[in-house]
Nucleic acid binder design. Structure first.
Lengths: 340, 340
DNA sequence: TTGTACGCGTTATCAT
DNA sequence: ATGATAACGCGTACAA
């Protein structure tokens, strides 16, 4: 276990001052070609790489990107982490995770402290925490770079990546109608989330355009949990006539619907079509497998990473216009053409 | 956006030297009670917290803990992250994630570089990457603190936390026998994993003790994937007589079994009992819900975090004896007493 | 018990 | 194009 070479070693061995070495490291232009080459050679031989701590101390940079979230969907989190890392690690950044409770009193100060303590260069905030405008404001006030992932453009383009849930549910509506369904029920989510509203309006507005209004008793507000899905499904499935389709705000609740239908002896998709949202891990494992909506999470996270790096490095944000991604329908077994 | 207070500010405002402040920060004993109190007050008022970069540079510490893994189970990863954070964040550490490919050529150098680049204080390695003894050796050679999570005690107690999969599957065997089953089939996993061997032997040995040997054709080696589960289930379920039970090495494959049973019109648990391992997200969502084994992942990860911090801070490892946790059976709908 | 002075590895400000 | 030298914020011999 040898000691890590420092910039001084490189300077000494190549017979220049460390300032010049520093220039080479950071790709400054004003270095003689011969000198640069000589130094680079020494760097390679020594396997030298600048110490992030020292670098950070001097330049007040940490090469750390923070991920702030309060989201129970492990699959989503995992995909985001991989997506972010796929772009930020090759640019020399590491990812520091920070799960938190966005409804707790100290949510904001907790996040700010997290960033300050470790001099995090910038943070990516996931929904639903990303929907908290107070957090965004606090980050701004503290001069902290951030990018939010959300379902609505609630911030500047350089600070946000949005998933067009509305368009996806609009597609869902068209798909269900194309199957011949005329009586569609909805298990919505907590309506204080932007995403819930987007999804709900995405489907109802499109249905309306197609001349189908969903009556109020066919729209129930669930809590996005499996148990809540069960509860809402019970309410919906004892209505007469029974709806032909239930579209849930997420796969968890859709799984609850499947459970209740099974209990009540209702055949899915024979007598009832069911759809979810998320393409969660079990969406393809349940029986029948679930028709759902898949967000390109990895790509979205990668885009967010690009944006945060651009912000940190103050680069001319190449593709600031590129901030919106569209989820797409995954059609599986739980939905079917109406037969009668 | 005010500038962050430094140790000098604290020193100035409390009228002492920064050396003394440093003592207070680091909990040294040799500081007058009155002085300590005065300084602490200033610290609180200023909301001062020491800069990790500077601290690290001086003490060659980063207050960063790395998490190395090559594991596709997002739920497991998420739980580990939360478990680790629950203990390490209150001790002032942050968690840096490092997914990797443990079968790639540069796996080891990749991990070493990860640690060196950011001066990571120590790493926690998850299975199956944790089973690579070459990595452990490399970490040792580089003087890097590490803790492995595994299913077998393949390292010193201070460097490992093990989940007693063998005992858990032993329980499973006893449980199934208590249900009256006499013909048990097994879908094992890739046998180059320690965990696979532990689980397989856990069940077969206990069955043997109970006077039941599992014939070779009733043990199939799967690949831990859903698709593989389907394949193995097909092989097993066309055998005559058909086994009464299929125990899979994980929930993914158990879900595959459920799928095939459904296709073949075999009622679970009426005609066939099925069990998995992991208590994966969908284990409680599939129909019928899955009898499985739950590892106390969060607790295990917390224990690993305690160990790595102890290693880093070179503390007398308080509870070095505490390194083994036992998973427990979760009994759900997919297993039932034999009726005939 | 408390303080002085220096070092950690890098970047940045000035010169030259 | 290159180099001395001062920060950056904190820890720690060593001294008092």
């Amino acid at each position: 276990m040898e000691k890590k070479p420092t910039i001084n070693d490189v300077a000494r061995l190549s017979g220049v001052s460390k300032r010049t070495v520093s220039r080479v490291i950071n790709g400054a232009t004003n270095v003689g070609a011969a000198t640069r080459e000589r130094i680079q050679k020494v760097i390679d031989e020594l396997g030298f790489s600048p110490d992030k701590q020292a670098r950070g101390l001097a330049a007040s940079r940490s090469y750390l990107i923070g991920l702030i979230y309060d989201n129970p969907d492990a699959l989503y989190i995992d995909q985001v982490q991989r997506g972010v890392l796929s772009v930020c690690s090759e640019k020399g950044y590491e990812l520091v995770v920070h799960p938190c409770h966005y409804r707790s009193d100290d949510f904001i100060s907790n996040c700010i402290n997290f960033v300050r303590r470790s001099n995090i260069d910038g943070v990516i905030v996931l929904p639903p925490a990303s929907e908290a405008n107070e957090l965004a404001k606090a980050l701004q006030n503290h001069g902290i770079n951030y990018v939010r992932m959300a379902s609505v453009k609630i911030d500047e383009q350089e600070n946000i990546v949005v998933s067009d849930d509305r368009a996806a549910l609009s597609d869902m509506a068209r798909y269900l109608v194309s199957l011949g369904h005329k009586d569609i029920a909805i298990i919505s989510g907590p309506k204080h989330y932007y995403s819930t509203v987007e999804r709900l309006e995405g489907i109802t507005h499109t249905l309306a355009e197609l001349g189908m209004t969903v009556p109020p008793e066919r729209i129930i507000e669930g809590k996005n949990s499996y148990e809540s899905g069960i509860e809402c499904a019970r309410t919906l499935l004892i209505q007469t006539p029974r709806p032909q389709v239930i579209v849930a705000n997420n796969d968890e609740m859709a799984a609850g619907v499947l459970k209740v239908a099974h209990e009540m002896g209702i055949d899915v998709p024979g007598e009832l079509s069911v759809a979810g949202f998320d393409d969660n891990l079990f969406a393809s494992r349940v029986i029948p497998s679930l028709t759902t909506v898949q967000r390109p999470v990895v790509a979205m996270a990668g885009l967010a990473a690009k944006k945060i790096v651009a912000l940190i490095e103050n680069k001319p944000t190449e593709d600031v216009d590129d901030y919106i991604v569209k989820p797409h329908l995954i059609i599986r077994e739980s939905t079917r053409k109406v037969t009668k």
